[in-house]
């Protein structure tokens, strides 16, 4: 589904990604992990063409991302920081995104699920961080695209909403979608994901399932296994 070849990107003199290759062919949930500044968001934004790579090529569902914007119909993206135009009402934003992307009936169900009815007439600027994130999730999940990219999806959510989010992600997985997630919460990653892609200093240092990672590093839980990966590479 997603094929990244020889991706390089630097911001001014700061090299963020250097010759990164990533091939995700199958369905399932993939976690992109790595310390702060390892290039997770840059990788995701490159796949979405929000960041223009210096070198390398990216293909999504067989389409070259440089050639056309149509491939983004295949992707639902949850951005890391939910910033919306503040003078717009929630329902206006939903209507607008529907207008831009096409019809969907799923929004009603999601509004109920996340208890967003009381906020529909509120301006986005007046919402709390968690409620904004719920709107963010709603906008992402209301379309049925084969690829889901979630950048720190659990930020700011209360426990109930977090459980609902997990259910939602698993439902999408059942449908046979490819799901990319970044997160700093290891328990969330361990619970949800099939495979881990570990980024360090702009390159992939590990790609495989959690069991293999634990075995390779000789650790019993994921948090320590990741820490061991980091230590090994810093020595």
């Amino acid at each position: 589904m997603i094929e990244v070849v020889g991706l390089c990107k630097q911001f001014n003199r700061n090299v963020v990604l250097s010759d990164l290759n990533l091939h995700i062919a199958e369905q399932g949930i993939f976690a992109i992990l790595g310390p702060n500044g390892s290039g997770k968001t840059t990788l995701i934004k490159s796949i979405l063409s929000m960041v223009i790579p210096d070198k390398g090529s990216i293909r999504v569902a067989g389409m070259d991302v440089k050639k056309s914007s149509d491939y983004r119909k295949q992707i639902d993206y949850l951005p890391q920081i939910a910033n919306f135009p503040s003078n717009l009402k929630v329902k206006e934003l939903i209507r607008m995104i529907k207008d831009l992307r096409g019809k969907t009936e799923k929004d009603q169900q999601l509004i109920e699920q996340f208890g967003l009815q009381p906020y529909l007439d509120a301006k986005l600027g007046n919402l709390s961080g968690g409620t904004k994130q719920k709107v963010n999730i709603l906008l992402t999940f209301m379309f049925d695209s084969p690829i889901l990219i979630l950048d720190e999806p659990s930020t700011g959510l209360d426990p109930l909403a977090l459980i609902q989010l997990k259910e939602l992600i698993l439902q999408e997985k059942q449908k046979g979608k490819t799901i990319l997630i970044t997160s700093h919460i290891m328990s969330f990653v361990e619970e949800m994901t099939d495979e881990i892609v570990f980024l360090l200093e702009g390159n992939i240092h590990f790609k495989g399932d959690i069991q293999t990672l634990k075995k390779d590093t000789g650790q019993s839980d994921l948090e320590h296994a990741i820490a061991a990966l980091l230590e090994k590479n810093h020595v």
């Binding site: 979405l48 914007s69 919306f84």
Partner: peptide, 14 residues
């Protein structure tokens, strides 16, 4: 002021 809005749009097929 519309930077966020722009970013939202950039992830859409436009």
């Amino acid at each position: 002021n519309s930077r966020e809005f722009t970013e939202l749009l950039l992830a859409q097929p436009i």
